[in-house]
């Protein structure tokens, strides 16, 4: 009797649709909250959102982020305000994709996207530079550094709604 019971279960499952996907030809759809490779965002006019404040790096539990900042001005503007990230590097071997950097960012410049195919054969390739992380310039925007109207972008932190 027991053997019939056992085979019944087997046949029941045989009838079910297979859940195995033929990766990489087939890709499973991601949840919106999935945390993949980081993106550095830009404003619509092309300015970088990142202001080089290093808070992501401070929040990072794996010490994966390296930021070096420099000064900005209206002649050569990378980001609003006085400070921008001259160097921005993430070591993807160290990163644990926890998303703390995203939480720490005061300008929502860094966001974890859905890209996850990041294999490399050389350890040095694990360091993603600013050029690799930053989004393309949106349509209608200018690449950075931009020469901008004096005084137009002198605040680093965008105006926030009253946080109360």
């Amino acid at each position: 009797m027991n053997i019939i019971k056992g085979f019944a279960t087997t046949f029941k499952h045989l009838r079910e649709e297979s859940i195995t996907l033929q990766y990489p030809e087939q890709v499973r759809p991601f949840q919106e909250r999935f945390k993949g490779r980081h993106h550095l965002r830009r404003y619509d006019n092309g300015l970088e959102k990142c202001i080089g404040c290093s808070l992501c790096s401070a929040a990072c539990p794996a010490d994966a982020i390296w930021v070096e900042a420099a000064e900005n001005n209206d002649e050569q503007r990378f980001s609003p305000g006085e400070r921008y990230a001259k160097t921005y590097e993430i070591n993807m071997l160290r990163c644990i994709f926890c998303g703390y950097c995203e939480d720490a960012c005061p300008t929502q410049a860094i966001e974890l996207g859905h890209e996850h195919q990041m294999s490399f054969t050389d350890r040095r390739d694990s360091i993603f530079t600013k050029e690799m992380l930053i989004d393309a310039v949106p349509e209608g925007g200018q690449p950075t550094p931009q020469k901008v109207e004096a005084g137009a972008f002198d605040r680093a932190i965008p105006d926030m709604p009253d946080p109360k």
Binding site: I51, G52, R83, P106, R155, I157, M160
Partner: peptide, 11 residues
């Protein structure tokens, strides 16, 4: 006082 502590050298 501005809330620009993220870019302030004293922050």
């Amino acid at each position: 006082h501005p809330l620009d502590c993220p870019i302030c050298d004293k922050g």
